[in-house]
Amino acid sequence: MFDLTGKCALVTGASGGIGGEIAKALHAAGATVGLSGTRVEPLEALAAELGERAHVLPCNLSDPEAVDALPKQAAEAMGSVDILVNNAGITRDQIFMRMSDDEWQSVLDVNLTSTMRLCRGVMRPMMKARWGRIINISSIVGATGNPGQANYAASKAGMVGLTKSIAYEVASRGITANAVAPGFIATAMTDKLTDDQKGKINAQIPANRMGMPEEIAAAVLYLASSEAGYVTGSTLHVNGGMAML
């Protein structure tokens, strides 16, 4: 099950906790992986850890030209892009009344517009190949909202609408588009929380713990597989029961 031998996957935000695990899971299933992100050092460390079938593809997702160029660079490095995982995202939290245009726009640009550009960039070859997997990493917040995150929540909800529309258009061509919506996931960012803060978060989660990056990666691996060919336009919520959608 879930053998990705011969497939090539482009993962954005691969320098982060969740993106790194996604890349590892796809790689372990046999895929060649293109590791994209802004910070080159962690990408190279990950590529070194993975060994063969790993390519470092640095990209600044707030630069539209760089984003448009990325699918081509990835295809040149790997041979094709069969699987696209839009995982990169930023937050710029602010209560809505004080949210500046820049705080709004920068989050929308990186999280939503770059996702759109990358999806558009990989579509042609996927159409020709009659096979493709698009997996957009949304967030529980895109479905539930979150105070202080109007920009982030809007971008993550936008990704779901984008994903569904793409899914409709290309379903007949063997291409699926799905979203994964993580809840609270333990990463370097959440490590900084105090035990008290962690306790409060865990109390809101029926599973009574934060999720692991590997648990998001497993959802992505499933959606990337040939076995998931009949699953499209869906959002897979991985949140320990925090929101049952």
């Binding site: 042609r124 159409m127 258009e169 007949s172 061509r173």
Partner: peptide, 9 residues
Amino acid sequence: SLDTVELVM
């Protein structure tokens, strides 16, 4: 409409 895109390709 998707067929027309593919024809052009």
